[in-house]
C-alpha cells in the first residue's frame, strides 16, 4: 500500500491513481474498486456516473500541468480529493495550479501532489496548499519518509505570503527598523 505524508505524519493510503494508457479513451477506462483518483478527462466524460462516487467520498480527480483548474470549479464542493500531477519534479506548473485551486477557487478539501514528488520539494508543495504528498510507490522507504518529515520545517519564517501563510513576513511579524536594533 502506498505511503503518503498527511497532517505531518507518514501514513498508509488506499487511494489509487488511475492513469490512462496511451491511446486509451477517457470514457472507456475501467475503474478499479475502492478509492480512486481519475483524470480530468474521465471525470468530464462520465460526470453523471462518477458524481455519486465523489459524493460518497470514494472518487477524486487529478489535473495535469496543462489543465485549467477552473474546469473543476463547479465540482469542487463534491470532490473529496483533488490531485495535481508532477510528470517531472522540475515541472513547476503544479505549484501554480495548487495555488489557484486554493486561492482563486477556494477549494478546501484534500489536495494531493502525485507523480514525481520528491522530498526536497515537500516544503514548497505544502506552502502552495497541498495537504497530502504522495511520492511514487517504492520511491522512498518508510524510514526515508520519516526522516523527510524534518524537511517540512526547513524554514521557520518564509518571507513571502503563500497559501499556507497568506500574509508576508512583514505583516505576520513585527520587523524592526535599524534604529531600534541599534538601541538594544
Amino acid at each position: 500500500m502506498p505511503e503518503i505524508i498527511k497532517n505531518g505524519r507518514v501514513q498508509s493510503d488506499d487511494w489509487q491513481v488511475l492513469r490512462l494508457a496511451e491511446g486509451e479513451a477517457a470514457a472507456d477506462a475501467v475503474l478499479p474498486a475502492g478509492h480512486v483518483i481519475v483524470p480530468l478527462a474521465t471525470w468530464q466524460a462520465r460526470r453523471a456516473e462518477l458524481l455519486p462516487k465523489a459524493e460518497a467520498g470514494t472518487l477524486g480527480v487529478w489535473l495535469a500541468g496543462d489543465e485549467d483548474p477552473a474546469a473543476l470549479a463547479a465540482d469542487l464542493p463534491a470532490l473529496p480529493v483533488v490531485a495535481v500531477d508532477f510528470p517531472k519534479f522540475a515541472d513547476g506548473r503544479g505549484y501554480s495550479l495548487a495555488t489557484l485551486l486554493r486561492t482563486r477557487l477556494a477549494y478546501e478539501g484534500e489536495l494531493r501532489a502525485i507523480g514525481d514528488v520528491l522530498r526536497d520539494q515537500f516544503f514548497f508543495l505544502l506552502r502552495c496548499g497541498f495537504s497530502v504528498l504522495q511520492p511514487r510507490e517504492g520511491k522512498y522507504t518508510t524510514a526515508q519518509l520519516e526522516a523527510a518529515l524534518a524537511s517540512l520545517r526547513d524554514f521557520t519564517n518564509p518571507y513571502q505570503g503563500a497559501v499556507d501563510r497568506p500574509e508576508p513576513l512583514f505583516r505576520r511579524q513585527p520587523r524592526s527598523p535599524r534604529q531600534e536594533d541599534a538601541a538594544r
Binding site: G92, Y95, S96, F124, R127, C128, Y159, Q160, L169
Partner: peptide, 14 residues
C-alpha cells in the same frame, strides 16, 4: 529579493 527568496510557487520555472 526577499519576496523572491524561496518563493514556493516559482522555484521551478520553465
Amino acid at each position: 529579493r526577499q519576496w523572491s527568496t524561496f518563493h514556493p510557487e516559482f522555484a521551478f520555472l520553465p
